[in-house]
Amino acid sequence: MQLKRYQFRPGLWPSLATLVMLPILLALGFWQLDRADQKAAMQAEFSARYDQPAVALAEAIGHQDADDLRWREVTLTGHFSEPHYLLDNQVFQGDPGYRLYSPLQLAAADGAVLVERDWLPLGADRSQVPQFDTPGGRVELSGRVVPAPATGIMLAEHRIEPLATQLFRVQRIKPAELARHSDLELLPYVVRLHDAAHAEDDQAAALGGFGRERHLGYAFQWFALAATLLLIYLIVNLKKRPTDND
């Protein structure tokens, strides 16, 4: 292949490197586009469910899967049980503290659900036990079904740390794990009460967490790298044609 004073003479090693790297870069770009589509679908699902009317959780359990209830507004009736759990390393309005979770035994259905009740300040130091009151007897509550809060990578086995009688500090909220610890039959999701400290941030946090635009940005970067690789490959392998005067 010749371009006026230049000819394209691909070398072995640049060709092999390009043949290996180019498909990888393109695959990563298309993977990010697929992730963006998935996040867009999740965002649409969230928006549709967020504004639906509230349903009674005890009635919905028998008719809807756990995934179908995610982000739905629910009402629930029952009584609080023990133990209580404090999710560690939670910041609210710049202050460190805990999110408080308590199991609620449902009155009109078998089993219990973890309820995110509020945020509690850390106190003077980590040895201080936060104080809170738990309503006794039958309660009627309203909230929203939310995924269990995400946590970072656990570098060691998760330790459920006792702080007081029937009060434990944890580094993650996993209903299945806490069901084994408490011997309760817990539903596989969390209900965040409307008056919990983070409740007003549900919609903004969830919409921001889907991150479709971020994946589109990553896709652009991978495709740009692929284009740059091709350009470098062409430049490296373009050789000046010899002339009669050379």
Score class of each variant (00 low, 15 high):
Gly217Thr: 02
Pro14Lys: 03
Leu234Gly: 11
Val145Cys: 08
Gln43Ile: 05
Leu178Asn: 03
Tyr189Lys: 00
Gly211Asp: 06
Met42Tyr: 10
Arg9Val: 14
Leu106Gly: 03
Pro242Trp: 15
Phe132Ala: 05
Phe223Ser: 09
Arg72Met: 03
Arg35Met: 01
Asp125Val: 01
Ile235Trp: 00
Pro135Glu: 06
Leu163Tyr: 02
Gln52Lys: 08
Ile153Phe: 10
Lys4Gln: 14
Tyr85Lys: 06
Ala56Lys: 14
Gly211Tyr: 06
Leu193Trp: 05
Arg9Ile: 13
Leu25Thr: 08
Gln105Thr: 12
Val113Ile: 01
His194Ala: 14
Asp95Val: 13
Pro130Asp: 07
Val146Cys: 10
Arg159Asp: 10
Asp201Ala: 14
Leu69Cys: 06
Gln128Leu: 10
Ala176Asn: 08
Val113Asn: 03
Ile24Gln: 09
Val113Phe: 00
Val20Thr: 12
Gln32Asp: 09
Leu104Gln: 03
Ile153Trp: 11
Pro162Met: 05
Lys239Met: 10
Gln38Ser: 09
Glu157Trp: 07
Pro149Met: 04
Ala204Asn: 07
Ala179Pro: 02
Leu207Glu: 13
Phe223Leu: 10
Gln2Gly: 15
Pro130Lys: 03
Leu87Gln: 02
Asp65Thr: 15
Ala227Cys: 07
Asp88His: 03
Thr243Leu: 12
Phe223Tyr: 06
Glu59Asn: 14
Asp65Val: 11
Leu184Ile: 07
Ala204Cys: 01
Lys240Tyr: 02
Pro103Met: 00
Ser81Asp: 15
Met154Trp: 09
His84Trp: 13
Ser102Trp: 01
Arg241Tyr: 09
Glu185His: 15
Pro23Asp: 05
Gly62Ser: 11
Asp68Met: 09
Glu161Gly: 00
Lys239Asn: 14
Thr151Ala: 07
Leu19Cys: 14
Leu230Thr: 06
Leu187Asn: 08
Thr75Met: 07
Gly97Thr: 02
Arg5Ser: 14
His181Gln: 14
Thr228Glu: 05
Pro147Ser: 09
Phe8Trp: 08
Thr165Trp: 09
Val74Tyr: 00
Asp125Pro: 11
Ala196Asp: 13
His181Phe: 13
Leu19Ala: 12
Gln90His: 03
Gly111Lys: 00
Gln38Asn: 09
Asn237Lys: 04
Val91Arg: 15
Pro10Ser: 02
Gln93Lys: 11
Asp133Met: 04
Asp88Glu: 02
Ala54Thr: 12
Pro10Gln: 00
Ala224Ser: 13
Ser127Leu: 07
Pro96Ser: 11
Met42Leu: 10
Ala176Tyr: 06
Ala41Leu: 04
Val55Leu: 10
Gly123Gln: 08
Gly29Pro: 07
His198Cys: 11
Leu3Phe: 13
Leu100Glu: 03
Ala112Met: 00
Gly136Arg: 07
Arg180Ile: 08
Pro162Ala: 02
Ile235Phe: 07
Leu120Glu: 11
Asp95Cys: 14
His194Ser: 14
Gln131Ile: 13
Pro103Tyr: 02
Ala205Lys: 12
Arg70Asn: 08
Leu178His: 04
Ser142Phe: 04
Pro135Ser: 05
Asn237Phe: 00
Thr77Ala: 12
Gly209Lys: 02
